[in-house]
Simulated assay, not measured.
Amino acid sequence: MEHLDVAVIGGGQSGLAAAHALRRRGRTPVVLEASARAAGSWPHYYDSLTLFSPAGYSSLPGLPFGGDPQRYPHRDEVVAYLLRYADQLDAEIRTGRRVSAVRAEDGGFLLALEDGSHLAARAVVAATGGFGSPNRPALPGLDSFTGTLLHVTDYRSPEPFAGQRVVVVGAGNSAVQVAAELAARARARVSLASRAPVRWFKQRPLGGMDLHFWLKVTGLDTAPLGRFQRGPATMAVIDDGRYRAALAAGAPDRRPMFTSIEGSKMTWQDGTVEDVDAIVLATGYRPDLGYLAPLDALGVHRGPRHRDGISLTHPGLAYVGLEWQRSLSSASLRGVSRDARRIARRLAAHLAQP
């Protein structure tokens, strides 16, 4: 059986950043990516997605994003960038290798792959993000809904919803973007349903500088706030004014969460009952770490038990790319490399021990 130094599970932005940081520490990581290319979940996001951070803040170490640093790159630009990064990375990347289970063995780890093969590794970095584990909340009557029900994971474009009555559940960036797109491009009648009102951040406050400039100069982007975060957080919507104006115009309108569903009929809190054609759940994700279940390394909501990305249950296990792993930016292109350097330093020290 092949023995690896460090197995990095996931070949998206988190896995690539982890491999780069481990190479800088003299380790020999092997990246195991389930899909056919090392671009993570980015190829699967909806067609109109653009970054909230400018290109100048969205690079991994060793390769600038390129182009106008003030622009907001499109999904496909991010995919192309990650593929370029993978090509120039001084680490082995194996695509089409999905890890199904990780077990502790002989002071290290045994990885079972979906194709039936096995690998041994002295250390493991879990860098699979959350796209493979969409959060589907238990909403009243949702299981009885007879219309089209999908998570935003499966949403691509507004055309299939043309002229329909659509309810988007959520109050974050994806929920607002998708709801506004459906209302504008599909001419759908769209409501944004959420338990709390939408919170807003101006994309370019205080003199026109992008929000991420202020997060950086104030230190808020890197502050170790993750250990104080309990459970998933609802982030404010970053807006250049378009989405707030769309909600103010009622396209989409925003409503408190519905109270029940029976078949295609939805009942709102004011007692109104109407037929709904489709529901889109823009309700976030949970960590996609089911392969770690044999280690008993997971806690509440299938989240890992860790401190700043280092496992509290297994000293050779680390994480990169978790939401609020250490800071506000831990799960983003602009912040994942800082966490990768931190866990690489800790793993290198662990592996250097007799």
Rank of each mutant, 00 (worst) to 15 (best):
A186P: 07
A186M: 05
A186T: 04
R187Y: 13
R187H: 15
R187W: 13
R187N: 13
R187G: 14
R187F: 15
R187C: 15
R187S: 15
R187L: 15
A188N: 06
A188I: 11
A188L: 11
R189C: 06
R189F: 05
R189V: 08
V190S: 01
V190D: 01
V190A: 04
V190C: 02
S191L: 15
S191H: 11
S191Q: 15
S191V: 05
S191E: 14
S191N: 14
S191T: 15
S191P: 00
S191F: 06
L192M: 15
L192S: 14
L192K: 15
A193K: 03
A193C: 15
A193Q: 08
A193F: 10
A193S: 15
A193L: 13
S194V: 13
S194I: 12
S194W: 06
S194D: 09
S194E: 06
R195C: 06
R195D: 10
R195Y: 08
A196T: 14
A196Y: 05
A196V: 10
A196H: 11
P197C: 12
P197S: 10
P197I: 06
V198H: 07
V198R: 00
V198P: 02
V198L: 06
V198N: 03
V198G: 04
R199M: 02
R199N: 05
R199E: 10
R199H: 10
R199T: 07
R199L: 09
W200P: 09
W200C: 12
W200Y: 07
W200F: 12
W200R: 04
F201M: 11
F201G: 04
F201A: 15
F201I: 13
F201C: 13
F201S: 14
K202H: 08
K202L: 10
K202C: 12
K202E: 08
Q203N: 03
Q203C: 03
Q203W: 03
Q203D: 08
Q203A: 14
R204T: 02
R204D: 01
R204Y: 06
R204W: 04
R204F: 09
R204K: 04
P205F: 12
P205V: 08
P205L: 09
P205S: 12
P205I: 05
L206K: 02
L206P: 03
L206W: 12
G207I: 09
G207L: 11
G207P: 02
G208F: 07
G208V: 11
G208Q: 08
G208A: 11
M209E: 12
M209K: 09
M209R: 11
M209Q: 11
M209N: 04
D210K: 01
D210I: 03
D210N: 07
D210F: 02
D210R: 01
D210V: 04
L211H: 03
L211C: 01
L211R: 02
L211K: 05
L211E: 02
H212L: 14
H212S: 11
H212T: 08
H212F: 14
F213K: 00
F213L: 00
F213T: 01
F213E: 00
W214F: 08
W214L: 06
L215C: 04
L215H: 05
L215I: 01
L215V: 00
L215S: 03
K216Y: 07
